[in-house]
Structure formats: structure tokens, C-alpha cells
Simulated assay, not measured.
Amino acid sequence: MIKLTYILSFSLLCASHMLLANEPVKLRFCYEDKQLLPYYAGNGAQIPTPPGATIEHLQEGIALVPQLKVTFERRPWLRCLQLLEQNKVDAVVATYNELRLSFAVFPLDENNAPDSRLALNQHATCIVQRVGDNVTQRLKDGVVMARPLGYVVPEYPSGVSIVPVQSQQQAFSLVKLGRVDATTTTCEINTVQLPNMLNEQLEVIHPPLYESTGYLVFSKAFYNQHSKLATELWRTLQQTQNPNRYYQYLPQ
């Protein structure tokens, strides 16, 4: 009787482990709670339909990795980074910065450099100014530029001073009101120039000020536990690249 009880208990334990092993791994993805077209649509905590090009891309890619189940959280961008550092979310999309390596895992090549072959997208950033303000001619002489909190600050010309703001929309408002000289916005995606979506008071200045690359990055804890799944997702997202996905969110 004791032997039979032991066998039954062992069988139940094995069965429970098998069920757990077959359950998909939860991937908690955090992204900005303010609209940032074409990447993210809508404002607030809700996930709208359609959700934005980046979310569509992630949904399509993760659907091809059945071992993963994604949940989306919308927070202020700086809060998403903090939660990633605390291992309270598992992934964000971000540009590469060495300071982020202490808490985030980027796809790296054999030289430990960011692997652009596994990037989500490449985009260029242009200056936004009041119409006719000629900010680019004054960059070395002293320009005040608004920049949303949590975004990587590139190497601007020496005369540029940065004012941190809560959102891209706040940055645009400060430029319109004349409280800062300029801000920046995405003006090209995958080398294709985007249409001007600003009102008549503001203008986008070409050529781009700088270029950057967006990566899906994982928390240290998630990557340490599920490195094979993370690598599989990076590769799968390359197979589901679709440039038209971005352009459908922009005015024609």
C-alpha cells in the first residue's frame, strides 16, 4: 500500500512538472503611454486597435514563438526603463547605450557590439523649429532644445543645451510657445523620409541631425532564464520585418 501511494505521488508530481513545462513563458513588454506614431498609437494605459507598428511587429513575431506569451504594459518611458532595471518587466524597445548594459541585454555580435542585423528598425532624427527660425545655423552659438526624459541624448554640437520634458508633445508645445528653440522628431524610418505631421507653426529640418537603431532588449533576469527564447525571438522578428507596417500609420 505504501509503495502504491509512493508511485501515485511520484506520477502526479511528474505530471505537474510536465504541465508546467508546457506552459508558455510570460513576456511582460513595457512601452510608452503617450502616442508616438508610427511606433505606438493612442494614449494612456489601454492598448488601442490598431496599436502601432512596433506593437504589431511584436505581436506577429511572438505568435511564431509558441513558447512565449506576451502581455503589454503602458507606462511613462522612464518608468519602463526603471521597471526593466528592477526586473519587474521583461522587455522594452530602446536604442543602444553602454550605460544600459548594466541592466538590459541587447543583441550583440561577436565583437560585443550591437548587432544591427537583429534590430527592429533604423530611424533618423531631425530638428523641429518654429518656421523660419534657422536653428541649424545657431547650433554652435547657443540653442536650447527640449528632449523627453529617458531618451538617449546623442552628442549634440557644443552650443546645445538640453531641457528635459515629460513627452514629445510637451516638447513641441514649448517650441511653439518660444520657451525653447527646438526639439527633435523621427523624420526617416529605414531610410524612407516621413511626411511632415506638424502644424503650420513648426517645421522639420533636413538633413537628419543623427541616426539611431531600435532594438528589442530584455531584462537581465529574463535573459538569464530564457536566453534561447530571447535569441529565437530576435531572429523571428527579422523574418517578420515589413516596412509598409510603419507607413500605414502616417498621413499620406
Rank of each mutant, 00 (worst) to 15 (best):
K3D: 15
C30Y: 01
S102V: 04
A63G: 05
N199K: 04
N22E: 13
D141T: 13
K26H: 14
Y246E: 02
F103Q: 00
N97T: 09
P154C: 01
L229A: 15
H57I: 06
L139F: 03
V143P: 00
R28N: 07
T5K: 09
S116V: 14
D109T: 05
E98G: 06
R245L: 08
S161E: 12
V143C: 04
L64A: 14
L237M: 11
D133V: 01
R117G: 11
S167V: 05
E188I: 06
Q170N: 10
T231I: 09
C14R: 03
H57S: 13
Q166W: 07
N87M: 04
I162V: 15
K69A: 13
M18A: 14
P148S: 04
V192K: 14
E32T: 10
L81N: 01
L99P: 03
L139I: 06
M197W: 13
Y215V: 06
V131F: 11
Y223I: 07
P107E: 08
N190W: 08
Q169C: 03
A119Y: 01
M145F: 10
Y40R: 05
D133C: 03
K140D: 14
G142T: 05
R75T: 06
N244E: 15
Y6K: 11
E85D: 10
E200N: 11
V105I: 14
E211A: 11
Y40W: 08
Q170T: 07
S11L: 15
Q129A: 10
N242V: 05
P107Q: 05
L108R: 02
D109H: 02
Q170L: 08
G52Y: 03
E200Q: 15
Q168R: 11
Y156E: 05
Q129F: 08
R79C: 08
M145P: 07
F222P: 00
L37S: 11
C14H: 06
V204I: 13
Q166S: 10
D133Y: 13
R28H: 05
Y31M: 09
V70L: 06
R179H: 05
L83T: 02
P24I: 04
L68Y: 00
L233S: 03
R138E: 04
I205M: 10
Q193T: 12
R74M: 04
E23L: 11
Q225E: 14
V70P: 01
R138G: 11
Q129S: 07
L229H: 04
L58E: 00
N196G: 08
A94Q: 01
A15T: 13
V144F: 07
T95E: 12
I2R: 09
N111Q: 15
T185E: 11
I7L: 12
A91L: 06
Q59D: 13
R79V: 12
V105H: 00
L229Q: 09
